[in-house]
Design a protein around this nucleic acid. Structure first.
Lengths: 253, 253
DNA sequence: CCGGGGTTACTGGTCAGGCCAGTAACCGAC
DNA sequence: GTCGGTTACTGGCCTGACCAGTAACCCCGG
């Protein structure tokens, strides 16, 4: 006979649990309204402070949204990736996660996003990708627009065309974090204009590969582009850790 | 001149923001103690209820932990993937995320985990991988041990050997979700024993490839195994959506 | 000198009751 | 009918209080 460690559960946790349960078993669905705080406190037999703490947790977890004054009560929200993005961004910014790891992960995501986009994209999505690709070239005349963000928007369109939400969301997070890193570092003006030129050219090649359904090539171009962007800053050990991955995509280092 | 929409910020949100800021700029580090709720309420000039709501949010986000009676106050926790796992699991269980998407994402993660493990693993990690691979074969004599979980542990060891934390954590989440799906569905006893046999054999092949540093092969074996496990249940459309990916790993469908 | 048990000053968890600003439905006047 | 105000709610926040825990402290017996 084994004992299980005692773990007392706070009152508000029970409320959170019950409401999450009610949502997961279909009692409540997205768009439905929860009773008001005052109603919940009689339902659960607790004080309003306790109900409110439960509401805060549900709100922070992205389960509900509430607005003062609305007589209809808090609304159950469809899942929003906001929470996921935040906690993933926290992971990415963790000191223990090295540059190489982040870059590896990014190559992996962008590579497969391009791969899938080449076969799954609709015509509208292709047009959107092409448009954002051309937006990169326009950066030459817009010195105040952030470079990393603009390029990330291009990749974002590709990720969306992959028709894989997990890939899309994770890619958005990692891409966002790294775009910010770029914009923080990119100060030199001449450096910028040269990067704009090569990025615009690379983007066109990638768009063409996706347009023609050349999936493997798209992945190779995509990962190759990203790799070359960071190549100068990498140590030989870091380069080694990327070699196998790049090879698997058939990309040039 | 453009107007920005008014968005009032709740008092507790300001507290959350300030504390998160203090952590991200190094004022507080993991293991440090926050002042007590009563101290914070004078610091921020709000009531305890408001402080407590802020604490609840920070706790739900995995930033702090607190327990009653401890005179040292709430402790700032080192990052734990718990929150990430929960929100990712919620995403994975979402109806809008299809089986194919989940499977695509899993193939992507496990494929590259195997790829990297083949070149990056230490001898200890290889031993651990091999051990857990053999554990799968032992399942034949242990009808009450959950199959999906055991196999997932094997993959978990591989993910760890990839030396990429992002890959490891995301893989753990997706792997965990899918292992649970397997264990819920796997009821037939004869089905189980045949699956145990093939999985054990597949695992040995994968271990050998990782041992010998045959990275591409390891990725192909790994993704091939996973694919074949689900192949019977897939529609032709789902199969098509996986084809490009499988091809990119050089895996057999 | 040292160890152990009780005291004490805190901690977080919860409750009750109250005020305020805001929302949206309702309803009557035009 | 439409438009304006009224009204009955909502959530946000506050005050003040009690309880069960925790851990440091201190004192007493060895």
């Amino acid at each position: 006979m084994s004992f299980t460690p005692v773990q007392k559960v706070n009152a508000y946790e029970i409320i959170v649990g019950q409401i999450e349960q009610a949502i997961s078993d279909g009692t409540y669905g997205a768009g439905d309204r929860l009773p008001s705080e005052r109603a919940l406190m009689t339902d659960f037999g607790v004080s309003r402070a306790t109900v409110r703490e439960a509401m805060r947790v549900l709100q922070a977890t992205g389960v509900i949204e509430s607005r003062p004054g609305d007589p209809r009560g808090p609304v159950i929200t469809a899942f929003s990736p906001r929470v996921l993005e935040k906690s993933m961004a926290k992971l990415a910014q963790l000191d223990s996660v090295s540059r190489v790891e982040l870059l590896q992960f990014r190559l992996l995501l962008e590579g497969h996003a391009s791969l899938l986009a080449a076969t799954e994209r609709t015509d509208e999505e292709l047009a959107e990708i092409a448009r954002r690709g051309e937006d990169i070239a326009d950066l030459a005349d817009q010195p105040d627009v952030r470079f990393g963000e603009r390029v990330n928007r291009f990749h974002q369109a590709i990720r969306r065309a992959s028709h894989n939400q997990m890939l899309e969301i994770c890619g958005n997070v990692v891409g966002g974090v790294m775009a910010e890193m770029i914009d923080r570092r990119l100060t030199s003006e001449t450096d910028r204009s040269s990067r704009v030129r090569t990025s615009a050219r690379d983007a066109r090649a990638l768009v063409a590969a996706i347009r023609d359904g050349r999936a493997q090539e798209a992945a190779a171009i995509s990962t190759g582009n990203i790799y070359r962007y960071y190549a100068d800053d990498l140590s030989s050990e870091e380069t080694r850790r990327l070699a196998t991955m790049m090879q698997s995509y058939g990309a040039q280092m």
